[in-house]
């Protein structure tokens, strides 16, 4: 099959998955902004969100046929609970693996190592508690695969549409939050210069916690979206985690809009790339993108803009 025939279908898939990467990438970029650290355990926050959302919809699904309203309500509830689980996980993570080190002023290597430990701990604990097989959202939640419309012959399923629209809404919401609210102002000021921000009366500790929680809420909701398209499992966080980080670097780490652009571009590139390299090498494409971007333009497409998010 020629590339031209597949182009639009690959574009649709790329946009959908790319929007999820963008949602997760925001968590990396926000935390990088305030702490200048890669939060290696962000992928596990995402995983907890996915599990929370999936188990909530499974537990609350009424038996028999469900109406459209119920279906929409359940998806929204799954998103909410997923986000809540993600936020809680991020809060716990910050408390246990980051704050004690920050109190002591530990070297940066220590943070990276402690986050890796937290990631290993969290994913295996989830494996123990939730079983080690993958879990899907209930089949009867809504008819995912029904085609809603087509673009240039490419199928857009109901599932694709839901994931893309929700992700887009989250991205817009966060953009407004960072550029328009007091909290956003606080985050930006800490990212620019935490010492000065502290002198100006910003509660830096509180902003750091809020940044983690904000990233966690997004990752949790993103986790549910991802689980809706694929499934949830205790090892699910790793690959999307590395990819979302790639997206954050691609857009310019610390740059909120960059992370969104990076996510979408990465989703598209990896889908076009897999056409040439084979579907089993999908994950290799993202890695090649990461190495290439670090070689050619390490500051990313839009440039690193710590604290100047908008």
């Amino acid at each position: 099959m020629a590339f031209a025939d597949q182009f639009w279908q690959l574009t649709v898939t790329g946009l959908v998955i790319g929007s999820v990467y963008a949602v997760i990438a925001l968590g990396y970029t926000l935390v990088y902004g305030v702490l200048q650290l890669i939060n290696f355990a962000h992928s596990e926050v995402f995983m907890f969100g996915a599990f929370g959302g999936v188990f909530a919809t499974r537990a609350l699904l009424p038996s028999g046929n469900i109406s459209a309203t119920e279906s929409i309500g359940l998806v929204l509830l799954g998103l909410g609970i997923g986000a809540l689980c993600g936020g809680l996980a991020a809060f716990a993570l910050e408390r246990t693996a980051y704050r004690p080190l920050r109190r002591r002023g530990a070297p940066r290597l220590a943070y990276l190592i402690s986050a890796i430990g937290a990631s290993l701990f969290a994913s295996n604990l989830a494996g123990k508690e939730f079983g080690r097989d993958s879990v899907n959202i209930p089949k009867d939640l809504f008819d995912y695969n029904t085609q809603v419309f087509s673009v240039f012959g490419a199928r857009v399923s109901k599932q694709d549409l839901v994931v893309f629209v929700v992700a887009l809404a989250l991205l817009l919401l966060l953009d407004r939050l960072v550029s328009g609210t007091r909290l956003g102002q606080g985050i930006r000021s800490v990212a620019q210069d935490s010492d000065t921000a502290s002198l100006m009366g910003v509660n830096v500790e509180r902003i750091i916690v809020m940044t983690f929680v904000l990233g966690g809420l997004l990752a949790g909701a993103g986790g549910f979206l991802y689980a809706m398209k694929f499934n949830a499992s205790f090892t699910m966080g790793f690959i999307p985690g590395v990819k979302a980080f790639t997206a954050a670097v691609l857009g310019g780490i610390g740059n909120v809009r960059g992370a969104v652009l990076g996510g979408i571009v990465l989703g598209l590139v990896e889908n076009y790339g897999q056409f040439f390299l084979g579907a089993q090498n999908l994950d290799v494409v993202a890695f090649l993108v990461l190495v290439l971007i670090l070689l050619v333009r390490p500051s990313g497409l839009l440039g690193e803009r710590l604290g100047r998010a908008a």
């Binding site: 693996a97 530990a106 402690s114 430990g117 937290a118 701990f121 969290a122 123990k128």
Partner: peptide, 17 residues
């Protein structure tokens, strides 16, 4: 065997803290 890594992860955090 499958649970070993929970403990290894905890060891890393405890040591770092």
């Amino acid at each position: 065997d499958a649970d070993r890594f929970i403990y290894f992860g905890a060891v890393i955090i405890i040591m770092m803290v």
